[in-house]
Amino acid sequence: MTPLKIAVFVGSLRKGSFNRQLARAVEKLAPAELVFEHVRIDDLPLYSQDFDAAYPTVASRLKNDVASADALLFVTPEYNRSVPGVLKNAIDIASRPWGTNSFAGKPAAVIGASIGATGTAMAQQHLRNILAYLDMPVLAQPEVFIHFKDDLIADDGTIGNDGTRKFLQGFVDRYVAWITRFAG
C-alpha cells in the first residue's frame, strides 16, 4: 500500500483530552502505511467572510494541511449536544471561501469519546451533516461512541481493555478499507 497521509482533527483543546487519547489509540492500531498528522486548530482566528479577500497565514496553513491530506479523521467531544466551536471554526475556515473547499472529495471518519453514557452521538451526527454538505464521503459503520472511563486509554494511546481494543481494531480495519477505496 502506498503511504496515505491522514489529517487528524481533535476537537478538544484540553491538555488531558480523552479524544486525543482516542486518536492516539487509533493511530497505534493502524498499519504503518497510514501517516497521521494532527492538524493544529488552537491558534485560528474566528472565521469572518472578511478573510476571503486575503486569508490570514494560519488559516492558509490549515487549508494547505487539509488539501495535502489523502483522508481525514475527526475525533470530537460533545459540547452541549453538538461539536465544539473550535472544531466548527476550523471546518469553516478550511472550507471557505466559496469554491475553494479543501475538504471536497476526501474520505473521512468521525469518532469520539466522552464520560457521558451516550458518548458523543449527538455531536457526531451534527458533524456528519456538516461533512456531507462539504462533499466528503464519511464512513458510516462502525459508529464509535466511546464511554470514557479511567484507565480505558492511556495518554500514549495504549488501550487498557481487550474489548475496546478489538472494537477499535475493527473500526481501523474498516477505515483503512474505506480510505483505500477513494485513494486508488
Rank of each mutant, 00 (worst) to 15 (best):
P77T: 02
T100D: 11
I153V: 13
W98F: 07
Y175D: 06
L34M: 08
E33V: 02
A90H: 06
K88L: 15
P56I: 05
N89A: 05
L46R: 15
R174V: 11
L29N: 11
W178N: 05
R61T: 15
K63E: 12
H38R: 08
N129I: 08
R165K: 15
L131F: 10
Q124A: 05
A69K: 01
A71T: 08
Y47T: 11
L134I: 09
A109Q: 03
I130Y: 12
G184P: 06
V39H: 12
Y175E: 01
T120R: 00
T100H: 14
I179R: 03
A54S: 15
L29C: 11
H126D: 15
A109F: 07
F182T: 04
V172N: 11
I111W: 00
T76Q: 02
Y47F: 00
G16D: 14
F51R: 09
Y79F: 15
D156K: 03
A71Q: 13
D42G: 10
A23M: 01
K15A: 14
D52Q: 13
G157H: 00
G119I: 00
D155F: 09
R181H: 11
I115Y: 00
L134Y: 06
V75S: 03
R61P: 13
A59S: 14
D43W: 06
K63C: 10
S95T: 04
L131M: 13
A132R: 11
F182M: 04
E27K: 12
A53D: 15
K149Y: 14
I130V: 14
G112S: 11
A183P: 12
L4D: 06
Q125K: 09
G112C: 03
A7Q: 01
D65E: 13
G85K: 00
F148K: 03
F36M: 01
D162N: 10
T76F: 01
A69S: 12
M136C: 10
S60H: 14
P31S: 07
A183S: 07
A108N: 13
L22S: 01
L46V: 11
L22A: 00
K15V: 14
Q21R: 10
A121H: 10
W178H: 10
V10Y: 05
A53C: 04
R165V: 01
T180I: 05
A32V: 09
L46P: 09
A53Y: 04
N161L: 08
T100K: 14
V66G: 06
F167W: 03
Y79M: 13
D50W: 01
R165S: 12
A123I: 08
I111F: 03
Q141C: 04
G99R: 02
Y79N: 14
K149C: 15
Y55R: 11
L72F: 08
K63N: 02
G116D: 09
I153E: 03
L73K: 09
I93Y: 09
G11R: 03
W98V: 14
K88Y: 07
F171E: 05
A23W: 01
L46F: 08
L73F: 00
Q169C: 05
L44V: 01
I41E: 02
S48N: 14
D155E: 15
